[in-house]
Design a protein around this nucleic acid. Structure first.
Length: 815
RNA sequence: GCCGAGAUGGUGGAAUGGCAGACACGCUAGCUUGAGGGGCUAGUGAACUUUAUCGUUCGUGAGAGUUCAAAUCUCUCUCUCGGCACCA
């Protein structure tokens, strides 16, 4: 009688043994080819839920697969530990963020260990510890030295709930990415990184094996558009400003400009508004300032604006057109001013309709009879009402008008981007302090590298005041100027958490290196990351920032590559009752109880069996016992005595077994490579079902049977690491199965000798014939016509075309 | 509004031009006569046919098309999910 499969016992046993024997410790000096399999590190929010397992378990299977294939695999784990939730917990519950975070780390580490992954725990990193954030600060200094960090006063996104600024990437649909509170604009002096310098490069994804949709999202985020800045004269003799510069992508429509619109925040507004319009304009600006981003960006809202009282002159035709202000024009894009061409722009058309402004057609729609337009015509066409350019095709006119404007020095062709610089400062405590000192005499002075880290003090008052709590900490605040030694003040803002995660994958390589953020030779050896897996929600945040960091480091000469992640794979999300899991909804599924009852191996296998990894799915545990039963069956199969058939073994059964074994190796290997873990498990199930039939029949030799069984165990090892280790040991194989080579298949042995040939008549299946592989068309046709079932449909009819697909199908078409 | 992905049995899904429903879950029946989310065996898309269980027809969101052959390719539409959204 064999013992029952008891997952909790064997899982604890092997996790301990693996740790004691340092089975998964990664060797930087190994001469075997490297494979860097990175999975996005979790944020320290409290508990791992089933979604984390969904991200981690298949990633681990892939890493184990590569390991068994002979690669030196780095598959590290760590914790993204700075950020708002820790501080909010402090405000709400009076727990210090550090205490809250580190206790979460302890809990999450315990949970992560229960997965049974190949993580090398000696490489764990925690971003909120000084030994890590010292180097985050060092990167800030590098950015400063490279001219990529600057401080500026600008209209910024402000989350009234978080009481802090947000980067553009962190504004989702006009709301805060974390709490969905509508964002408002404020003029504040903040730190920025010049990510726009890399706008063009960030749109390029050459040589990257990334999902199409992430590449598209990033390119759209950069939002490159080619156009022209054109100068209009201000028709106001005494004014100090003489011109307004607008940005347009349609220079071909410049003769159709019937008014100018400035963003309410545009600096010219104050200078050109006439005395009688001043009150209206002020009121409008005030209203615009107080509306939040969601209201302002809502496209179905009726466009409104006010006239400034002043006119502009279109230099191309001398037309005198009114200057308006309206909040549908954004101060942060282009020049913050547009020439409105209502005939050929939907927004301008709507605005002109509302205020009775003229609509002048300059690109004639096909078959146009000269009547008033019902909507803006935005397509190409023949140019009209444009003096010398009349009759030209609009694409050609665009070129010629642009050239003309440049020749007259009235404007310049240029490229504009939607992308803005990355705002990195946060008015918060729980982050890495920005390593900068303000001196009355010397101005902004970076903290010298040898003085890092600028330690985050433990004592702080947590009040959501909109200012960093560090402002109220005198011992942190007051310091001396690193340059002149005079009394000075420290920067009290901390860095955006996305700074920490923009380089963490470099730190895993030398997590304890204290002479620098990383060792260049080791970076050369391990980077770039071969496969990165994680959620798609980071498309224009973490993934985008990391690419920027790597490109900036490359240009500083610190590394010699420009892309961090060669292959990217996004797993889907696990929902509960078709809703996103969240603590507030109370629908978070905790994996712990499943693990303690059924074992990590069953939970791993079940998650992968749910469906394609990139698709995600709704959590429903009704099928989980099926996976647990399956492992139980293999458990029994492997340990029950195998007896050969009393009458002797069958040669054909042996041949079949060998063929099916090799076919299974091929299917499983290809499925893991394609990240199709659900079909990988199906293939393993079919194989184990087949083996149990053999076991019952006893139709192959003992040696052949056990040979096939060890293949099954090795193919299953990445999916069920504890289970296979235990069975492996019980079959008296040497420790450890995870040091075994991945089975290789022989294509010749995987080949079928006899195949079922599908016989169709007029495209309908009428017969299946077992035929030897490689049969000729002639022979196949002969056999097909011998079949009764086929004859029923063919007899008495004239045979026409015969379609023959070798080793698959023959289709007989009657006339 | 724009872009992307998707829609297949009671359920999760498989099949990427060539046998629709692999592999599971669930359900039904039987066996295992101590119960168990237990084990094993068989069945399980729908309709028709059946005193010849061998078959026939239909069937992959809806409609059209291409093809000897369509879940798969093309077009139109409906719905679901995700992203972007006044970027001039």
């Amino acid at each position: 009688m064999i013992e029952k499969y008891n997952p909790p016992e064997i899982e604890a046993k092997w996790q301990k043994r693996w740790a004691e024997t340092s089975l998964y410790n990664v060797n930087n000096d190994s001469s075997t080819p490297k494979w860097y399999a990175l999975t996005m590190f979790p944020y320290t929010s409290g508990d791992l839920h089933i979604g984390h397992w969904y991200a981690m378990a298949p990633a681990d299977v892939y890493a184990r697969f590569k390991r068994m294939q002979g690669y030196n695999v780095l598959h590290p784990i760590g914790f993204d530990a700075f950020g708002f939730p820790a501080e909010n917990a402090a405000i709400k519950r009076g727990i210090h963020p550090k205490k809250w975070t580190l206790s979460n780390v302890d809990n999450m580490r315990r949970q992560l260990k229960s997965i049974g992954a190949v993580y090398d725990w000696s490489r764990e990193i925690i971003t909120c510890l000084p030994e890590y954030y010292k180097w985050t600060q060092w990167f800030f200094l590098k950015m400063w030295q490279a001219g990529l960090a600057y401080r500026a006063k600008a209209p910024v996104n402000w989350c009234p709930n978080c009481q802090a600024v947000l980067a553009n990437e962190q504004v989702v649909g006009g709301g805060c990415w974390r709490c969905e509170t509508p964002v408002i604009h404020r003029d504040l002096e903040q730190w920025f990184f010049r990510i726009t310098k890399y706008a063009d490069e960030l749109m390029q994804h050459e040589g990257l094996d990334w999902p199409e949709r992430i590449k598209t999202m990033q390119s759209n985020w950069v939002g490159r558009s080619e156009g022209m800045e054109i100068s209009f004269l201000i028709d106001c003799p005494g004014a100090e400003e003489k011109e307004i510069r607008v940005f347009t992508t349609r220079p071909d429509t410049v003769f159709g400009a019937s008014f100018i619109v400035l963003a309410p925040e545009h600096p010219l507004v104050q200078k050109i508004t006439t005395a009688e319009k001043k009150a209206d304009v002020e009121a409008y600006i005030d209203k615009a300032r107080h509306s939040n981003e969601i209201e302002r960006l809502s496209t179905d809202r009726e466009k409104d604006g006010v006239f400034t009282g002043t006119y502009a002159i279109n230099r191309l035709n001398g037309a005198k057109i009114p200057i308006w202000i309206a909040d549908y024009v954004l101060v942060s894009y282009g020049t913050g001013a547009v020439m409105a061409v209502p005939a050929h722009d939907e927004r301008d058309f709507a605005f002109a309709q509302r205020y009775g402004l003229p609509v002048k057609v300059v690109v004639s729609p096909f078959g146009w009879d000269g009547s008033a337009l019902k909507e803006a015509y935005v397509e190409t066409g023949l140019i009209v009402n444009s003096e010398n350019f009349d009759g030209l095709e609009s694409d050609i006119a665009k070129e010629q008008i642009s050239a003309h404007i440049e020749q007259q020095d009235w404007g310049k062709r240029m490229v504009r981007y939607k992308l803005r610089d990355w705002l990195v400062s946060r008015q918060r405590y729980w982050g890495a302090p920005i390593p900068v000192v303000y001196c009355k005499k010397c101005g902004i002075v970076p903290v010298p590298e040898e003085a890092l880290p600028v330690l985050l003090p433990d004592e702080a008052e947590f009040k959501p005041t909109g200012e960093s709590p560090l402002k109220n900490n005198p011992s942190f605040l007051s310091t001396s100027c690193p340059s002149c030694g005079a009394p000075a003040e420290r920067e009290t803002d901390t860095m955006d958490t996305f700074m920490c995660s923009s380089w963490y994958f470099l730190r895993y390589i030398n997590p304890h290196h204290d002479k620098g953020a990383f060792e260049p030779e080791m970076i050369k050896k391990w980077m770039p990351v071969d496969i990165y897996t994680g959620g798609a929600e980071h498309a224009v945040m973490h993934l985008f920032y990391s690419r920027f960091f790597i490109k900036a480091l490359r240009d500083m000469g610190l590394i010699d590559f420009g892309e961090p992640f060669l292959r990217l794979f996004n797993q889907g999300t696990v929902t509960k009752d078709h809703q996103k899991m969240s603590k507030s909804k109370g629908n978070v599924v905790n994996p712990d109880e499943y693990v303690s009852e059924l074992g990590a191996d069953t939970v791993r296998a079940y998650l992968m069996f749910l469906g394609p990894w990139e698709q995600g799915g709704d959590w429903d545990d009704s099928g989980i016992y099926g996976l647990s039963r399956w492992l139980g069956r293999i458990w029994n199969l492997a340990q029950n005595e195998y007896k050969e058939l009393p009458g002797g073994i069958s040669a054909s059964a042996t041949k079949d077994l060998i063929r099916i074994t090799h076919q299974t190796i091929r299917r499983v290997s290809e499925d893991i490579d394609r990240m199709r873990f659900n079909t990988m498990i199906s293939a393993l199930m079919e194989f184990s079902n087949y083996l149990s039939k053999i076991h019952e029949a006893g139709s192959v030799a003992v040696a052949e049977y056990f040979q096939a069984l060890t293949v099954l165990l090795r193919l299953l090892a990445p999916t069920a690491p504890h289970f296979t280790e235990e069975v492996w040991a019980r079959l008296n194989h040497p420790y450890s199965i995870h040091e075994q080579k991945w089975p290789e298949y022989d294509p010749a042995l995987a080949l079928d000798e006899v195949i079922p040939l599908v016989v169709q008549v007029n495209g309908k299946v009428r017969e299946r014939l077992l035929v030897p592989i490689g049969i000729t068309e002639h022979e196949a046709k002969r056999l097909a016509l011998e079949s009764h079932k086929v004859r029923i449909f063919v007899d008495g009819k004239e045979l026409g075309q015969v379609v023959y697909v070798a080793n698959k199908l023959i289709n007989l078409v009657t006339k």
